[in-house]
Design a protein around this nucleic acid. Structure first.
Length: 886
RNA sequence: GGAGGCAUAGCUCAGCUGGGAGAGCGUUCGCUUCACACGCGAGAGGUCACAGGUUCGAGCCCUGUUGUCUCCACCA
């Protein structure tokens, strides 16, 4: 079959190719005991999301891994899906309701959820459609959503399982409260931002301070409004300034509360005034101090962050209003001392960046101690590998310092907590469904907990809930554990760690062998792409202009994957140009390919064929090695270099004489070799640039129906030809020298010259004889004479010294003797430098004693080689000098 | 306050277990060579941040310094 290919590659074909893959069902996987599985769980995309560069990067990496394994014959499953993304989705829906003048209260829980599901139906498909344009080869038949019936059952089962083990409990603890989203959030969702603030110095009057002029105690705080919840003032027990005050009481103004002065280790004498006001209900440290001293906890905040009734005259104000008002009032009372600027970190919600208020609330928690241990062990023992390795330390540290996980959220969009409270006796029943009668009192009326679960509680189960857990399915038995989890390093804590301890606990086995963490895509200035900056690049627009192949290739090359990468239009063009190069190499082949499929015939191969096959073989091995350790960028770079430099710039040029001559006996081998090497390159490239490689592959042959299922290239012993490799490298060296000399001597490119190649070595002469026509073409020669010595060569010819051979260009009428002497001098100087470098090593005692013998031998060989070449150059220089003097 | 990453050609970045500095873009010169100007050929351009150390040998290993980025963290 022959196809006319366009002069340039156009990516318009991508959509049709993808459609065909889907129709053929290539991406679908079923358990098959006769084949080994290879599984990747796609990190579920947020249903409200739009495809961004981060997606493009992570999914391209996964697709490369999956496509390669598929070609290697594995039964590959790449399972896609979407995440309900509790908070972000709920916030978006609420925002959309505001435009209609509606609130959650107006709709009620049922009504809100109905609207949320409608929202999901409407927008949930967008991200999936966009993903397809990237070319991802995942099994869409198995697409899952975290709130699917099955996955929801997994969530509830997990909750019950952990509850029964005593690892889920409900308790009144200090939690992170987001006044904007009006929900608790976990520690992992709190970000710390450096902000400029003021450190306020205030005084509390000491009760019965009486006659003493120090009738007050001075303290410092960054949050004056919290004084309304103070239940103590703490000093250090050893602090001479305050020792005598311990045990006395002071008054909190405005609320007229008497609170004790206590001693606690937590206070640092050097900071501020050495006195800390204690607000157990709104600060983690103070909470701990309060526990040690049995202090009251006074909540002064409403859920929206305004002050509540406990704040007395300040009730109803926002935190900031209250802070200002209190400061004014303290001034009026003469209790204000000063303020100092202070730069410190404040905790904010990672979604909305609202300042987090610590509050005491009754919430559900997962006890982490017992869950964290096996997760640590699985890494320490080497059963879990993390790439790049440095994240291992971060993984360990986080698990070692982990605190209990607050999992309840005051949201409606999510999995509702399966806790039912008996309205008769108050007993809590944890069950999949609402109980009929209370086991305690026999009462029949229950009220389910209003809260839903942290969105990560469900995604933590993703590697097995998607395969049917808690049922014991065939899918689970076959595909679990999965092979590698690929994701950005920013969700290591949120997701990766939680999947690991969940898998270990619930499945008894780690969810994946490897974790591969990659960086993020930044804009051309190195800034994070973000909505607020408006600097995001839309992958869909890029795909439209350059094609998904170009985008994919660009994202994986020129950067180590673990590092952040910058998005440059220029790099995109580089990728596009490369794809065009591959395209045109194919055009070239098809131009000379009459459809006759030549057979492999190793004995008919020329030296040049053997050379490119050897190079191809080396590439296959080297690329495999890189890909096995997830070094996809380096592997791509190697393939790129091979295709462009070796295959296109050299091999294709070398075989032109054989192809242009229809009667050439070596034409079929050239065709066979080019086709073999090109096909191998296409296969190696397919994971990176799936569309164009498929298109080309199909145009080159009609035995296989897709490249996607073709056999992955492997290293083959029969394609190892070291002698031929060396011979062609020598020829390349001579050619490069001739080209440079021509330019140097101002020989026009079109001007054909004569070349006399002299070598005393019969093998070398034989090789050049065999490659004569290719050599002539590459060097721009009309005739090439090969002889054992320089007899008959004009003394003034330009001479180019190579390893084992000298090429003479008799350019008599063109040559400028002085210029040639100059050139030879340069050459001699270069060789002398090389020699002295080798000499320095070889005359170093230490080197001779301690360096590996093969390295020493290598240096000796180099020295000899350069020495011979230098002698040849000197000889030629003398010849010219002699002739010039005539 | 801890921990880690990065500093290599004008720009963006590669450089595996230490053994003669690489790519892409840009730049200079020359090319309508019948696959490709999204191209071909030939160049120029680097004290590998700085200071020490280990080693026969350091861009790579160790220590420190400077700059820069990130993560973690309950000092009011």
């Amino acid at each position: 079959m022959r196809k006319e290919l366009d002069k340039n590659y156009h990516p318009h074909l991508e959509e049709a190719i993808y459609q065909r893959w889907l129709e053929k069902n290539y991406f679908h996987a079923e358990p098959d005991g006769s084949r080994e599985p290879y599984t990747i769980m796609m990190p579920p995309a947020n249903i409200t999301g739009q495809l961004h560069m981060g997606h493009a990067l992570t999914f391209t990496i996964q697709d490369v891994l999956i496509r390669r394994k598929r070609m290697q014959g594995y039964n590959t499953l790449w399972l896609p899906g979407t995440d309900h993304a509790a908070i972000s989705t709920e916030v978006k829906i609420v925002d959309s309701m505001i435009k209609e003048g509606l609130t959650k209260k107006d709709l009620g829980r049922e009504g809100f959820l109905a609207r949320a599901w409608k929202w999901k139906e409407e927008y949930g498909g967008t991200i999936v459609r966009q993903l397809k344009s990237l070319g991802v080869s995942c099994d869409w038949d198995r697409e899952r959503f975290t709130m699917d019936e099955g996955l929801s059952r997994a969530v509830l089962s997990t909750f019950i399982h952990l509850y029964e083990k005593g690892w889920i409990y409900r308790g009144e603890k200090l939690i992170n409260w987001c006044p904007h989203c009006r929900t608790t959030i976990s520690d992992a969702e709190v970000e710390h931002e450096e902000r400029d603030a003021l450190l306020y110095y205030f005084r509390y009057p000491i009760e019965d301070g009486g006659e003493n002029e120090n009738a007050w105690i001075e303290f410092a705080t960054t949050r004056p409004e919290t004084m309304l919840g103070d239940t103590a003032v703490a000093v250090h027990a050893e602090d001479e300034r305050y020792k005598r005050l311990i045990g006395k009481t002071v008054t909190v103004p405005f609320v007229n509360r008497s609170i004790p002065v206590i001693a606690d280790e937590y206070v640092e004498m050097g900071f501020g005034s050495g006195v800390v006001k204690i607000t157990p209900a709104h600060d983690p440290n103070d909470f701990a101090v309060g526990e040690r001293h049995g202090l009251n906890r006074i909540n002064i905040l409403n859920d929206d962050g305004t002050l509540n009734g406990a704040a007395g005259p300040f009730a109803g104000m926002t935190r900031l209003e209250c802070r200002e008002k209190i400061t004014r009032e303290m001034k009026r009372l003469g209790l204000f001392v000063k303020t100092e600027p202070l730069r410190h970190a404040v905790g904010v919600h990672d979604r909305c960046h609202e300042i987090i208020e610590p509050m005491i609330k009754l919430q559900w928690f997962v006890k982490m101690e017992q869950l964290a241990k096996p997760a640590l062990e699985v890494y320490q023992s080497g059963r879990l590998r993390i790439f790049p390795e440095r994240f291992g330390k971060i993984y360990m540290r986080w698990l070692e310092n982990i605190r209990d996980w607050c999992i309840s959220r005051q949201l409606w969009w999510g999995h509702r907590i399966p806790a039912y409270y008996c309205q008769g006796c108050g007993q809590t029943v944890i069950a999949l469904e609402a109980p009929q009668t209370c086991p305690g009192c026999g009462h029949g009326v229950f009220k389910q907990d209003e809260d839903t679960l942290d969105t990560w509680f469900s995604s933590a189960l993703w590697p097995f809930s998607t395969l049917g857990w808690p049922d014991k399915t065939k899918d689970l038995a076959y595909f679990y554990p999965t092979d590698v989890l690929v994701t950005g390093y920013e969700i290591l804590f949120f997701w990766v760690i939680r999947m690991i301890f969940s898998g270990l606990e619930l499945m008894g086995e780690q969810p994946f062998r490897d974790v591969m963490l990659h960086g993020i895509v930044r804009d051309e200035f190195g800034r994070k792409m973000s909505k607020s900056l408006g600097n995001g690049i839309d992958p869909l627009k890029v795909i439209e202009q350059y094609g998904a192949d170009a985008l994919r290739l660009m994202l994986l090359t020129g950067n180590a994957l673990e590092n952040d990468t910058r998005f440059f239009e220029a790099r995109l063009e580089t990728s596009r140009n490369f794809i065009n190069k591959v395209w045109n190499a194919t055009r070239f082949l098809l131009l000379h390919f009459d459809g006759e499929e030549p057979d492999e015939n190793l004995s008919a191969l020329t030296v040049m064929d053997k050379w490119i096959l050897t190079k191809m073989n080396q590439l296959t091995a080297a690329a495999a090695e890189r890909m096995d350790r997830y070094d996809l960028g380096m592997a791509a770079q190697m393939i790129y270099d091979f295709v462009w430099d070796e295959l296109c710039d050299w091999y294709v040029e070398m075989i032109k004489p054989r192809l242009y001559d229809p009667a050439n006996a070596e034409k079929p081998t050239a065709i066979w070799t080019l086709k073999t090497v090109l096909t191998t390159a296409l296969k190696l490239l397919h994971p990176y640039i799936p569309f164009v490689t498929e298109e080309i592959f199909l145009s080159l042959q009609d035995r296989e129906e897709t490249i996607l299922l073709s056999a992955w290239p492997v290293f083959q012993k029969k394609y190892v030809f070291p002698a031929e490799e060396k011979a062609v490298e020598r020829m390349k060296d001579v050619v490069r020298k001739i080209r440079a000399a021509r330019l140097d001597m101002n020989v026009p490119p079109a001007k054909k010259i004569r070349v006399i190649l002299v070598s005393a070595d019969l093998d070398i002469r034989t090789f050049f004889t065999g490659a004569r026509s290719a050599f002539a073409l590459l060097a721009g020669a009309q005739a090439v004479v090969i002889q054992p010595d320089r007899s008959g060569v004009d003394a003034g010819a330009v001479s180019l010294v190579a390893d084992g051979a000298v090429a003479y260009l008799p350019l008599a009428e063109l040559v400028d003797f002085e210029k040639e002497i100059e050139r030879l001098n340069r050459e001699i100087k270069k060789l002398a430098v090389e020699m002295s470098r080798a000499q320095a090593k070889l005359s170093n005692e230490g080197f001779l004693q301690k360096a590996p013998p093969e390295l020493i031998a290598e240096e000796r060989e180099k020295w000899n080689k350069y020495n011979t070449m230098l002698a040849k150059a000197e000889e030629q220089k003398n010849n010219i000098l002699l002739r010039a003097s005539c």
